[in-house]
Design a protein around this nucleic acid. Structure first.
Length: 564
RNA sequence: UGGGAUGUGGCCAAGUGGUAAGGCAUCGGCCUUUGGAGCCGACAUUCGCAGGUUCGAAUCCUGCCAUCCCAGCCA
């Protein structure tokens, strides 16, 4: 193994968390015979977001590191909310992230027959009954956090009667809401989940997979653990809010006498300036506040993909945030660090001007075009170089010129010399303004001795700025994004305040950029670093006549900090 | 006022009785044909608080405080 590989291995091995500690212990005691089988169990009622990415990386990462595998299983027990579109998007997103479940794609609905048999088993054991209380009555009989519940009048029904009633439920002999099947556990439990939880409800809804075969559907609690069990899952990893459900998860496994996986809960991801609520994300889409689930401002996996994030950067992010049981709020800057780090190594450089200021180089020949060598990636020599056209009229960034520069500004200013990247040194000779006093153009001279960007006399030029030849420039629609919300921690919104009030009106801006011509035939998904500006990626909205480009993330800008 | 969980620097996060890893952010400096990248350095006398046990406590014990979750026929 070469030093590089050893380094990589150690990096993986050093990632410790409480779940790995549990698995290490299981392996030591032989609890599962060294087996590790996890699953990622999304409900297909929305698109996956970065919080799901954390879970995906956790589950698939655990299996990968312990020589196990991971199943993809759709938790599709509520036909009124679930759709094929979501299934398709989830499959695409998990694959895109770089994970593979091979032939182990499952649906909880695959187990409806088995689940029905399990229900029968509990009825026959006297541990489940059909209850005719209404939803409201069930709620009031359940009691409260501090008051015990009381038994349903139907709790004492005979096994025979329950069998007959449950069959009738399945056969569609009752209306929705007439009755449910409940587990007979403990109405006095301090854990509300154990106060005779509902196992089956009547729903005359067409299921996206089972069609109209069923008019009764099992609840999450009566489905999830059993599905894990059927698949012989060893470690069932879920989020903190299911901690209170674990006793019920365990109860079903024990009383059904089936394989009993261990449920382990971890804290879900919260990110600053955004939110993970599927419902609110759906609202953003429905209300047209964003352009769709894959709007580059969305915290969805498809949003990040369109924005230009790489799967590797998101996996790296998931590794870096760690896993624990403490509810946390991760800085968005960590995510930005991860994408910059990846793209710095892999993205070819190019020059583009987003806010142009025209320069005429007065001593440069009128019709001459020179092709100058430019390095594609200073971080990776194997990416080679390209040629960029240079001519008498160019555009530079408006921010790169100041008529009255402060002390540490070492870009262009009247009388000052600056390096045009890969081209020449130029000196500003004259500032041209319109009748409103606005700067419209600069007259500069160039030093022919400095071709390529260095001078024979070794004179020091601190500032290097990017540029694009006016005559050769390529137009593009450039889309700039900022945080979708103005509030750092969206949990801080008071109960009575509408979260819509915190949507950032400046989160999306369209401008016209002037690009170097080498970008002409770039295809959707291509990523670049526009030197000194940031990382950008070609959007799918591009066509042969128009290039559309998304800004993924800006470069770090220490001048902006000094300037503040 | 019931039950379940969590409290380690601005944000994450190791640590499981032997004297506070690491990352992001921040702040200095070096270097630089991207004010990018890179490199070097700084950054918790202290682990929610108060007691106690111990030669020794973030780790054990007691009490308190704070925050989150639970009363869907959602997942």
């Amino acid at each position: 193994m070469n030093p590089e590989e050893i380094k990589g291995t150690q990096q993986t091995a050093q990632t410790v968390n409480f779940i790995r500690t549990i698995i290490d212990e299981d392996n030591r005691t032989g609890k599962w015979g060294g087996r590790v089988l996890t699953r990622f169990p999304p409900e297909p009622n929305g698109y996956l977001h970065i919080g799901h990415a954390k879970s995906i990386c956790l589950n698939f990462g655990l299996a990968r590191d312990y020589n196990g595998v991971t199943n993809l299983r759709f938790d599709d027990t509520n036909p009124v909310k679930e759709e094929q579109e979501y299934i398709d998007s989830i499959i695409e997103d998990v694959h895109w992230l770089g994970f593979d479940w091979e032939d182990r794609l499952f649906y909880a609905s695959d187990y409806f027959d088995t689940l029905f048999d399990y229900a029968i088993k509990l009825i026959k054991a006297g541990k489940a009954y059909v209850c005719n209380l209404s939803a409201e009555e069930i709620r009031s009989y359940r009691g409260t956090l501090t008051e015990l519940g009381k038994s349903s009048p139907y709790r004492g029904r005979s096994i025979e009667e329950n069998m007959q009633l449950f069959e009738a439920m399945r056969n569609g002999e009752f209306d929705e809401g007439d009755c449910v099947l409940r587990a007979k556990i403990d109405m006095a439990s301090a854990n509300l989940n154990l106060r005779d939880p509902v196992m089956y409800r009547i729903l005359f809804a067409e299921h996206h997979r089972t069609g109209n075969k069923w008019c009764i559907y099992p609840t999450y609690d009566f489905t999830h653990g059993q599905s894990d069990s059927i698949e012989k899952i060893t470690h069932s990893v879920c989020t903190l809010e299911f901690e209170d459900h674990r006793p019920l998860y365990d109860w079903y496994c024990v009383h059904l006498e089936i394989h009993h996986p261990q449920q382990i809960e971890f804290a879900r991801l919260n990110l600053t300036y955004t939110m993970m609520s599927k419902r609110k994300l759906l609202d953003l889409v429905k209300e047209g506040i964003v352009r769709g689930w894959d709007d580059p401002r969305m915290p969805t996996i498809s949003g990040f993909r369109r924005r230009g994030y790489t799967p590797k950067s998101i996996r790296d992010f998931a590794d870096r945030i760690g896993v624990s049981k403490k509810e946390s709020m991760v800085d968005y800057s960590l995510l930005e660090f991860c994408i910059r780090e990846d793209l710095n190594k892999t993205a070819p450089r190019a020059m583009a001007v987003l806010n142009p200021l025209k320069i005429t180089i007065t001593n440069y020949p009128d019709d001459l075009t020179e092709l100058l060598d430019a390095i594609n990636n200073p971080e990776d020599a194997s990416m080679g170089s390209r040629q960029v056209p240079f001519s008498k009229e160019i555009y530079i960034e408006r921010d790169d010129f100041m008529e009255e520069p402060p002390k540490k500004f070492y870009r262009l200013a009247p009388g000052k010399e600056v390096r045009l990247r890969y081209a020449y040194y130029i000196t500003c000779r004259e500032v041209i303004k319109n009748e409103n006093g606005e700067i419209t153009e600069l007259f500069c001279t160039y030093d022919p001795e400095t071709k390529g960007g260095s001078s024979p006399d070794g004179r020091r030029v601190l500032g290097t700025i990017h540029w694009v030849s006016a005559r050769h420039a390529l137009h593009a629609e450039v889309r700039l994004y900022e945080h979708l919300f103005t509030l750092e921690d969206l949990n801080d919104i008071p109960e009575n305040e509408d979260w819509h009030n915190f949507i950032n009106p400046k989160s999306f801006e369209i401008i016209t950029g002037w690009l170097e011509p080498s970008l002409k035939n770039s295809t959707p998904g291509s990523r670049f670093q526009f030197e000194r500006l940031g990382y950008f990626c070609v959007d799918a909205d591009s066509n042969e006549s128009k290039l559309v480009i998304n800004r993924t993330v800006t470069l770090r800008d220490s001048w902006a900090k000094i300037n503040k």
